[in-house]
């Protein structure tokens, strides 16, 4: 694994963005997340790895309260973003999700034009003062998602007509356009080919300058390539959390080692 050589990761001593303590999630009678504690740093890419069904996506969805849209899901524990408890009654989940953007596993552009897809969030939240301001926001988001050059001549074309990789970058642009502070990505490359994956990974690395990025991935190479911190989940437990280089070269827990060497999964 060539990528393992990029081990000199510049992790600044950043402030903690998200602090989770004793998080439990239940789906009906199933105990999906068991007592997870994790501190996610600002301006860092944090990867969640683990076998299927280990709860990493569930935990990710706790961070912007997307689990609220599932009737049977119940979340306990304490999750704070910038010190504020996001499960407090005073917090409006709708406002929270504007602050904590999300990119999904499968590209899900709305059946609207490329422009309207990106302008969706800013319009809902009233981020643009006028039409030209909105144009600027859309252009900036598309540039940041590294797709501007490909779509600048056809902003009125439907977003669903783009290729898979372009659609996913459009979805990233859409998430970025609302100026979130945290960007959650749930296996953003699982539906993409290697070239599109490389583009999205490059993009994730650039987004790190402005956001705290949390990415769920099944690909350990991807976790190793893009993240500074890695958390390994297994059967609803957070087994190990630390520097990515540390996790991949010298894991403390035998389960982590088994997983990354391919013995459990």
């Amino acid at each position: 694994m060539n990528d393992m050589r990029i081990l000199e990761r510049d992790v600044d001593a950043n402030a903690i963005k998200i602090a989770a303590k004793g998080v439990q999630v239940y789906y009906g009678d199933t105990h999906a997340i068991k007592d997870v504690d994790v501190d996610i740093q600002d301006k860092t890419v944090t990867a969640f790895i683990g076998p299927s069904g280990c709860g990493k996506s569930t935990f990710l969805r706790c961070l912007n309260r997307m689990n609220d849209t599932i009737d049977v899901a119940r979340v306990e524990g304490d999750i704070r973003i910038d010190g504020e408890d996001i499960y407090d009654k005073a917090v409006d989940p709708v406002q929270l999700r504007a602050k904590v953007g999300m990119v999904f596993q499968k590209p899900n552009p709305f059946p609207k034009s490329i422009f309207d897809n990106v302008a969706y969030g800013p319009r809902i939240h009233g981020l643009a003062k006028n039409k030209s301001d909105l144009d600027d926001i859309v252009e900036r988001a598309l540039r940041r998602a590294a797709i501007w050059n490909e779509v600048k001549d056809r902003l009125a074309a439907p977003g669903t007509g783009l290729s898979g990789g372009q659609q996913q970058r459009l979805c990233i642009a859409r998430a970025v356009a609302t100026e979130p502070e945290v960007l959650l990505m749930d296996e953003p490359c699982s539906a993409l080919d290697p070239i599109a994956t490389a583009q999205v990974e490059e993009l994730i690395d650039e987004l790190r300058q402005n956001y705290s990025v949390v990415i769920v991935t099944h690909s350990m190479q991807q976790a190793a390539r893009v993240s500074q911190k890695t958390a390994f989940f297994h059967l609803g437990n957070l087994v190990e959390y630390g520097e990515t280089g540390q996790i991949f070269t010298n894991p403390e827990d035998p389960r982590t080692e088994s997983y990354i060497t391919g013995r459990i999964g």
């Binding site: 997307m66 849209t69 999700r97 709305f110 969706y120």
Partner: peptide, 14 residues
């Protein structure tokens, strides 16, 4: 598809 709704909720839409 539910993905459409998730995408919209994820952007902070009601």
């Amino acid at each position: 598809p539910q993905a459409m709704r998730d995408g919209s909720f994820g952007l902070g839409a009601t």
